[in-house]
Nucleic acid binder design. Structure first.
Lengths: 144, 144
DNA sequence: TTTAAACATTACCTGACAAGTAATATATAA
DNA sequence: TTATATATTACTTGTCAGGTAATGTTTAAA
């Protein structure tokens, strides 16, 4: 393991990027989405629910239900999506809030890891969901 | 949780950095080392053994035994030490060799994660153990 | 020769958690 | 009423980091 990004977080990114390709007013069912993105339907539903609670996407229940992106994909960062699914990753445990390091003030690794972590997070904040569309020709945001 | 660096890897870095402070010919016991670096003695022994097998440090058994750094700390990178302890971290599982992604060629997340991972690894390669000495002013730790 | 103190090595335990499954509830349009 | 959506909770399972325990081997000093 030891992956920064969990499967669930990865799926959340895929899902938002896929929904960002829909036209205005268009929606998509979990079934279709999970087929497209190769995620089990039930797992996808759970993720979709979290994203909905966070306001990133909207859902309609019922027979003609489905879901759609409720945020501007050009403003929605990868970092935001990851955080909704619980992105609490650290370069090293010693950077965690509740970590009590006996070597604090003496250990130079701490500062190095801290700096690297900040650099990484900046990258995740910089990248927006619109940068990750699967098929750019289908995209429908301004300038078409 | 989900830390890039495991405790064991972190300890390996501490150990090599601490040993780098010894004078030429000087050695240190696991007992003293584990006290200094706040690592359980038995866990430290396991890590030391791995580092010895990799040639990073040398050990002497027996009553007056101990260990010493066998590499030049100015050439030994943090990356090398991490690798000895099994640094197989990925930004995302999809970067693993045995990962079979159904979205390959279509998914833009892959390329992004790959790029970020390379940048990170470069940093770990650039930093040498000599950059992390605990006490730069007293490198030879006189009155011990 | 005996013993103390060092490193060497293997085996095992345990709690956390990622990942996925199962089951059931609720909502809505035809 | 029914088919088909999403909503929600609970459970299962496998993995593994982190640590503990136990025992072996080596060496120098008593």
């Amino acid at each position: 393991m030891n992956s920064f990004i969990s499967r669930e977080q990865d799926y959340a990114l895929r899902i938002t990027a896929r929904l960002a390709e829909l036209r205005k007013g268009e929606q998509m069912s979990i079934k279709e989405l999970s087929n497209d993105m190769f995620i089990s339907k039930i797992f996808a539903a759970r993720i979709v629910h979290k994203l909905k609670l966070a306001g990133v996407l909207g859902t309609n229940q019922g027979r003609t239900g489905g879901m759609f992106l409720a945020s501007d994909p050009k403003k929605l960062s990868a970092y935001q999506v990851l955080n909704i699914i619980g992105f609490k990753v650290k370069y090293n445990n010693c950077l965690a809030d509740d970590f009590n390091c006996e070597l604090i003030g003496k250990c130079r690794f701490h500062g190095f890891f801290h700096k690297q972590e900040i650099i990484m997070i900046e990258q995740f904040k910089k990248m927006k969901i619109s940068d990750f569309l699967f098929n750019k020709t289908k995209q429908n945001n301004g300038g078409h």
